[in-house]
Each structure stands twice: as structure tokens, then as C-alpha cells.
Design a protein around this nucleic acid. Sequence first.
RNA 1: GGGGAAUUAGCUCAGCUGGUAGAGCGCCAGGAUCGCACCCUGGAGGUCAGGAGUUCGAAUCUCCUAUUCUCCA
Length: 927
Amino acid sequence: MEETNGEEFSLWDSLSSIAILLNRLCPPPQQCPAFLPIRCPMTSSKAASNLPPILKGAEIRDTFLNFYAERGHKILPSASLVPEDPTVLLTIAGMLQFKPIFLGQRTAEVPRATTSQKCIRTNDIENVGRTARHHTFFEMLGNFSFGDYFKEKAIAWAWELSTKVFKLPKERLVVSVFRDDDDAFAIWRDQIGVPVKRIIRMDEADNFWVSGPTGPCGPCSEIYYDFHPERGDDDIDLEDDTRFIEFYNLVFMQYNRDAEENLTPLAAQNIDTGLGLERMAQILQRKPNNYETDLIFPIIETAAAIAGLAYDKCDEAQKVSLKVIGDHVRSVIHMIADGITASNLGRGYVLRRLIRRAVRHGRLLGIEKPFIQQVAETAIALSESAYPNVRQRAAAILGELQLEESRFLETLDRGEKLLADLLAKVPKGGEIAGKDAFKLYDTYGFPLELTQEIAEEQGRTVDIKGFEAAMEEQRDMSREAHETIDLTVQGSLDELAENLHETEFLGYSDVASPAEVRLLLVDGKPVERAEAGTQVQVVLDRTPFYAESGGQIGDRGYLSGNQVVVRVEDVQKDGVIFVHFGRVEQGTVTTGDRLSAQIDLACRRRAQANHTATHLLQAALKSLIDENISQQGSLVAFDRLRFDINFSRALTPEELEQIEKQVNTWIAEAHTAHVAVMPITEAKAKGATAMFGEKYGDEVRVIDFPGVSMELCGGTHVQNTAEIGLFKIIAETGVAAGIRRIEAVAGPAVLEYLNVRDKVVRELGDRFKAKPEELPERITALHEELKATQKQLETAKAELALAQSDQLLDQVETVGDFKLLVAEMPGADADALKTAAERLSQKLGDGAVVLGASPAPEKVNLIAAFSPTVNKKGIQAGKFIGAIAKLCGGGGGGRPNFAQAGGRDPEKLSDALAEAKRQLTEQLAAS
RNA sequence: GGGGAAUUAGCUCAGCUGGUAGAGCGCCAGGAUCGCACCCUGGAGGUCAGGAGUUCGAAUCUCCUAUUCUCCA
């Protein structure tokens, strides 16, 4: 078929409707195995001979994987969204799980593989829903060659898959190659037969792949689908996304780039490709964008139904909101399924933002009530056949979403209230300051767009520039803080590292060893010798000391030699070099000295007990509470251990008791440790627990207590769990939303812990004359008694003050139209004075009352109560009493009608009162 | 890792530049009612998260700690 005659739309539309009809005739996957649609009547029909068959998303996925499986590729499962590579936050590309192979860190088990990989990217999050194909969640179909086939086959297969299997018309395909890649250009032109005009050369920015500043890299070649072939082959602009969509990217990894940017050919050349599932679905399902494909649209329909909307009748803004929900919900269910929980850091924070954006767009659509769970249920149903873990984890997903959604709705409520206050202060037509909007966002989590929207409704604007400036400031602050950490020894060590060799670690087997001083530092600077009394850092050629890592703190001990003793208090690791921090206790230590390095065995044993206990704790949590619990942080010290886990609620006392019991049972069962070093892949295959955020080499150390716990770990452990003796949980607290912290003690540290508790309880028992179990009751009773007594005392004091005040009525004098009372109320405290003064002032009517007392040594209280008529004479209680209080060595103030003051000189009280009386008499008498 | 904020009665929250801790709901009692709900009157209920400091005086200002929320990396 020669291209359409410009009537693209009508033809396309009519073909679409035929296709839809045909699809109805043979639609359901269960009747229609993956390849059947290709054999549908449609493909043989003349009218549709040039139109690819409509395939469901799932069929596209299966077709791709099977195509490459038939060509010797092993189908591997999608890797988790949480990458093994700790430097990467989330799995952002199909090749991520193979990166170590491409970087030469690991050898491939198979020469060819194919995957459908779930991916998350949030760098273009603002575009999601607004363009046809930006997503935070997408699936990348890929075929990979590890030093096996290269360009020729990769190109040929990609073309065969596109044109023969997916039946994309050749005339509608355009390919790109890297500017200098003549090989690829020739293959496309000569072997595939693509017209030269439809092979476009592109620059580095688009068609040269690098994994980092150095390392493997190479040119790419991409295949684009052309929605408007009638526009001709002459000015093809692949950047024009109204015409082209890139759906297949082939990366030819053929060079290694060094620090000087020299490219040298790789011995083993690799192929890494990616075909966007959603994009292919858009093409094959004739949809205007990815969102309306069967991979996402049901989610949108669910959301629309909840909002009471019909998608095709929605305006553009509503469609954007629905698309954002459709996209984000897919991200969110897979993230939670892979064990991520919403929090305020790292990938947990990414998850939170996605959930909140989805909720917010739901509100934009007019949904007031929680709805995310319902939408998520649709998303789970859509994904479960390809990713069964979303169904297995459905309860966790829905629970997490419900928690986070309600938390966000609370945040919004609070923000709306604060914004209302803010708006009240800005006149109509005015502008909300950028820093105010930012504070709302930064401190209270209230989205900027929402601030703008509500402000606009109220006829006000928001200073966006000011907001962004404030945001930039906040970013700088974070970044600076991030960079300025730990400059202690680092700098000088880096300079010297070239002259130092890797410290040989002997501590797994030895507790003491001869060693040579290779480097001596004082205050971070290298020195030849250090005298007794100086703080030093020592680098040895070999050491039995464990350096802090994996949460376990460094060993303590001594370095000793001829007349020299250095006490080691801590050991840190800088890469492969161990630095012993300590103090020279005796003699002079000199670079090159041969010393005996000996660790403090008692401390080491405690650390071992705590460390193994940490492993048992993790195993117990996984088996008793939730298998998805994983470590978020850990500390193993000599006297305690701390273990942070991702878990969204507090553990109950019963659960903690259960865990404690389980760990102690394992201790009592005396399990023997099997420690082995093996390739990481083997360890994983055996089911060893690894930690995210922990860097592992190819060879890993596995600590195995068969049947109980198996973990990758470089720390030191007991040989038998019985050595731990006893394990006791002492606290369970929250660290951040979604993260709980368990603190415990194990081994000898338990005894210390119990001794302290025991001493306190015994002392309390002695003091309260009660048995330990009676203490709480006893204290409650005493507490109540105390409160009752205090209450009685207060009442009595108030009564006394009133009685005293009544007696003072005798001393009232009349000055002109006013009543005047200046008196001392011995023993009355501040409260009593206030009560009395107020009562007297009421009784006197127009007039002034000044009372004074000294409730304690070195303490004076004064109260003045003036009627409004007195204020009119220009006398204010606050100012008046302040001046009087100065006479007693103090100060004071208050309101014009009622004020209080104090001082420190009781012996001057009567003089001060006399002065007060004199002044008041004089001023009140004046007319 | 670095910021910002919050913590006041059983619950939701006021409390201004330091000067006698409040409201609404809930609770208890009384009134009204054949009775209940509504309603009216009265009452109980507070270590102002904890600790230190400044001050004559701190819920209020400063510092530390804990907990929760939130933003950035």
C-alpha cells in the first residue's frame, strides 16, 4: 500500500473501527493464546493488510519474551524496584539488574537474557498526565547479550519483531543511529533495507549511552513509529513527538571510557535493549496516548466512576488528573509490593509523594472521601498475572495506602486552615508572600498548587519567584550539610592512601597479632613519633581489630611493644584501611614500630553476642510478624543493640514478648554458626538475607545458623547461639513514620541492665515500704492523696485570704471621692494576694487597693488593684506597682487595673507600702 | 544527613508584645419530660510533653531531651 493520501484521520478511524470489531470477534486471552491475534482474520484480510493486529498489553509482553526465548534467551523475572545497587534509589531501567555484568563486576550465568522489567522514574513527574507518554511507572521489555551476539543480530531481531511479529508497516518505521556509527548505518541500509532518508544520524545527547563518567559505553540505535508517514521523508525531525514515537532502543556497548575520556574497545561487547511496553500498546491499540491502553485505562475508569465522571466527557484538566491517578497508582502498588513504605526519606519519600499527588488529583476531581484503596484494587487486578506479588501483598498495599491517604487528608485540612488565616491578612487583589507559601509547603506539607488555586478563588495571587527562592535556599542548605560531614581524618588519609596498602584483617580468627605501624597521625596530621599522653590514630599493616561497619562498633584493646602501650578506644575503616583511634599510655610510639595488637576479648564477646542476637531478632520478626520486614538501620555496641525496621505501626507488648521468647528459644537450642565466603549469586540462591544500602562485593560472607537465620554480614559473631545466654528487649519506639526501632540487650549486658533495674526497684520498695509488685498501686494511691491534699490546701489558703481581706476593711481610708487601702497581709502568697485584692477592690468600688506580703525569706509580693475611675486620674496599676517594687529590689507590671510585682528585700516592704500610700493619697487628693 | 513546626481538659483546639489557664464536644448532677433526644442550670476534669535557664513573675522567651508532623538531600 502506497501511503495514505493525506486523509490520515478518516482512514485511520475507519480502520480502527474495523479493528475494534475484529478484536471483539477474537478478544479474550483465554480463548486467544498470545500469538493468536497475529493469525486473526484481520491480518489476512485485504483491507487491513497494512495494519498491525490489536494486542493486549499482556499479549505484547508475552509475545516479546517468547520471541527472544525462541532465539536462545533465558526469560528472567523482573527485578525488584528496590535495586541491589545501593547508589541507586529505584530501578529506573531494564538493564539495572545486569549492570554489574556490564561493568565487569560479575560474570553472566547465561549469554542471552530477556526480561520484562518494572521501572520507576520520577524526574519528569511534572509531565505525567500532561503528555502522551510520560510515566512514573513503566515496563521495559528488553533483550540482552553478554559478550555474545552484537549489532547485526540485535538489529535484525528488533526489526523482525517489529515488522513480522507486531506487524508494524515498514513504511511507518524510522530508525536513528549515532552520528559516527557507520556500522549500524550500514546494517540498517544494506541488510535490512531501510531507505537512507529514514536512517537519521543523532548526537551524543540522544544516541550515545554511558553508565557514568567512566566505564562501559557505546552508541545506540532507536526505532521510531511514524503516525504521519504522509508528511514525507524529507525533513524528518525525530524530536517531533506529534509525529514520531520512539519505542525500541538498542544500546551497543562497545567501548570503555577512562578518566581522560579515551575510548578503548571492550573485549566483551554487550547488547542492552529496551522496548517500552506502554508505547507499543499505544501503537498497537491505536490510542492517542499510553494512558488509554488496557494497561492503565481500567484504573482511570475506576477513578472516574468514583468521581461520578465519564472519561470521554471530561475536560482536559480532569483528564490530566485521571491520568495522573492512573499512572501513580501503578507505581505505588508495585513499590509497596516490593517492600517500600511511605516515610520522609529516600525511596519511602518518593512513595509518599506519589500517593499524595494521586490523592490530591482525586480531590481536584471532586472526590472528598478516601478512594485510593479502591483504585489500587483495580491496579492490582491488572498487574497480578504478570506480577503475582502485588496480589500476595495486597493487604499490605491497601493498609499502607489507607494510612498514608488519611494522614495526607489531615495535612490538607490543617493547611487549609492555616491558608485561610494567611488569606485574611492579604487584601483582595494582593499577593501571598513566597516565604509564606513556602512555609506552608515546607513545614506543613501543603502543596503549592493548592495554595495557588485557593488563593485564586479568593482573588489573590502567590509570589512564585519568592517560593522558588526559598526552596533553592533550602536545597543549598541540605546539600552543604551533606557535603561537610566527616572531614576528620579523611583528607589526609586520601593523600596518603597511595603509600598505604590494604590492612589485612585477622579478627575473624585471631584476637592478637604482631603488626607494624605504617602510619601515625596526631590531629589528623602524619607524624614520626607520638609521646605518652597524646591522642593518636594508628594504621597497621595487619590487625585483629574489627573496624566499625555494618552497625557493629570498632573493637577496643591495646597495642603494646618494647616500653610502649597504646590504648585503642575505637577503630574506623576508610575504604580498606583500618584506623585505630587511641591514646599513648606509656613510652613513645614511632612509625615502623613492631607492636603486638591485642583486642579486648570481653568487649569483643559482648559485641558478638549483640550482633548474633540482632540476626536472631531479624529472623524472629520475619517469621512472627511480617516476612517483608527488613533492616533500616542497626547498631551493635558492647552494651546494647538497636535495630530499625520498616513497619507501619507500633509492635504490641504481646508481639514483643513473643519475639523475645522466640529469640531466647533459639539461644537455648544452641545452634552452631556456619560461616562461609561464597559468590553473591550463590548466597542469594540459598536465600540469605541481604540488606539494602549495604555494599557487597562479588564474594560475600554468609553467617548461617541453619534453619534459623542466614544473612550476609561482615561482622563478628558467636560460634554457638548458646553463648549469647539471654536476650531482652528494652524498648520499642518510632523513628519516623513507617520505621520502628527496637532496642535490646544480649549476653553479659543483660545482667548489667537487670542489676540497674533491680537496684532501682529495691530502693523504691524500701522507700515506699512495699513489695515490687505493689509499687504501681502504691504510687498511684500516694499521687492521688497528694493531689487531694494540694487541693485542700489551696482551698484553705483562698479561704484564709478572704478572711484576712475582710479584716483589712477596717483600714480603708477615704481620700476625696476615693477609697484607699494599703496593707500588708503577713504570710499570704501571690495567689492569695491576688484573690484578696480582687475581692477588696470589688467591695470598695471606686478606689485603690495595694497589698503586700513576704511569703518566704528573700521574697516579696505586691498587688495593686485600681478602679477605672482611678485610672482616669492618670494612675495605672502596672506602672505604679513597678516603681514601688523597685524599692524592694524587684520589678513588676500588669494591666492598668490590676498588676503584680515582686522583690527580694522583705525588710523594705513596710517602707515601700508607706511610700505607696503617700503617693496614692497625694495623687488621689489632687483634683 | 540537614532544616521547619507541633505537643494546653477524655476529644478538637483558642490563649496577642510574659501578668489569676479558656471554648466547643464529651462526662457527672440537677431542672424540664410519662420516658428518651433536644433544651436550661450547675459541676468535675490541667505537672500547659519532660528538664534546665532568663525574670519580681514563664503555657508564652532561650537551651536540652522525648514524641508526632513536614520539607530538602
